[in-house]
Computed example of a mutant assay.
Amino acid sequence: MVIRDAPPGKVRIVLVDDHEIVRQGLRSILDREQDLRVVGEACTAGEALAVVLRECPTVVLLDLKLSTGADTEGLDLCEQLTSRHPEVGVLVLTTFLDDALVVEAVQRGARGYVVKDVDTTELVRSIRAVARDESTFDSRTAAAIVRSMRAGSEQPVLTGRELKVVGLLARGLSNKDIGARLYISETTVKFHVRNIMRKLDVNTRAEVVYEASKLGVL
């Protein structure tokens, strides 16, 4: 279902949730933000793929449990969206905080994962981060990744400064905010992030967090 077009410069959002009342509530909240606009909704994976193809959103807000009630439908959809539309950021918004689900969502291409009891400010911040091609995890979901991958015994391959950058990436901070925390320029942060991705052989910030957790360095 199409809502309406978004003026230039707006973050275009598609909502994927099988509960209409949830979509209505999210639309009401997000459309109050000057830089955000909900441009489409879907309640099934098939509808979601069609709406995304038609509306070209910046961000898809995705519940993992859709009409079938199975986790795999949302996870499969996440993977299809990120493979067919790599320019679109998928942010999981779900009721379930399960370590395995968080990790698999990242493996399937999600840029972030938040739980539905998140407050409005944090949700909006997460959407904006994903729109900037950044990963975003609150403290609970970041901890879930760490718990799931802590068993690895590999030694860290990152420098002390790079480890600090990874830790701040796991908290969902932007390059600008990381630079402010570490007293370095945003350009220097981008340099570190590129090096980290090269060393860990990954392509996204979310994968950085996942691989660093697997190495046990978070």
Rank of each mutant, 00 (worst) to 15 (best):
Ile3Arg: 06
Val11Gly: 07
Ile13Pro: 06
Ile13Glu: 03
Leu15Glu: 04
Asp18Ile: 11
His19Lys: 09
Val22Ala: 09
Arg23Ser: 05
Gly25Arg: 11
Arg27Ala: 11
Ser28Val: 15
Arg32Tyr: 06
Gln34Arg: 00
Arg37Asp: 08
Glu47Ala: 11
Glu47Tyr: 12
Ala48Ile: 04
Ala50Glu: 01
Leu53Asn: 15
Arg54Ile: 15
Arg54Cys: 13
Pro57Ser: 04
Thr58Arg: 13
Asp63Phe: 07
Lys65Thr: 13
Ser67Val: 10
Asp71Met: 07
Thr72Tyr: 06
Glu73His: 04
Leu75Phe: 03
Asp76Tyr: 03
Cys78Asp: 05
Cys78Lys: 13
Glu79Cys: 15
Glu79Trp: 07
Glu79Met: 10
Thr82Arg: 03
Gly89Met: 14
Val90Ser: 07
Val90Pro: 14
Thr94Pro: 15
Asp99Ile: 01
Leu101Ala: 13
Val103Phe: 01
Glu104Gln: 06
Glu104Thr: 01
Arg108Pro: 04
Gly109Asp: 01
Arg111Ala: 15
Gly112Tyr: 04
Val115Cys: 09
Val115Lys: 04
Val118Lys: 11
Asp119Trp: 05
Glu122Val: 09
Ile127Met: 10
Ile127Cys: 10
Ala129Val: 11
Ala129Gln: 14
Ala131Lys: 07
Ser135Ile: 02
Phe137Gly: 06
Phe137Thr: 07
Ile145Pro: 00
Ile145Ala: 00
Arg147Trp: 00
Gly152Phe: 00
Glu154Met: 00
Gln155Cys: 05
Pro156Met: 03
Val157Ile: 07
Leu158Trp: 11
Thr159Leu: 02
Gly160Gln: 03
Leu163Asp: 05
Leu168Met: 12
Ala170His: 10
Leu173Gly: 06
Leu173Ala: 10
Ser174Lys: 02
Asp177His: 12
Arg181Val: 08
Arg181Gly: 03
Leu182Cys: 06
Tyr183Ile: 01
Lys190Gly: 15
Val193His: 12
Asn195Leu: 14
Lys199His: 15
Asp201Tyr: 15
Glu207Ala: 03
Ala212Val: 01
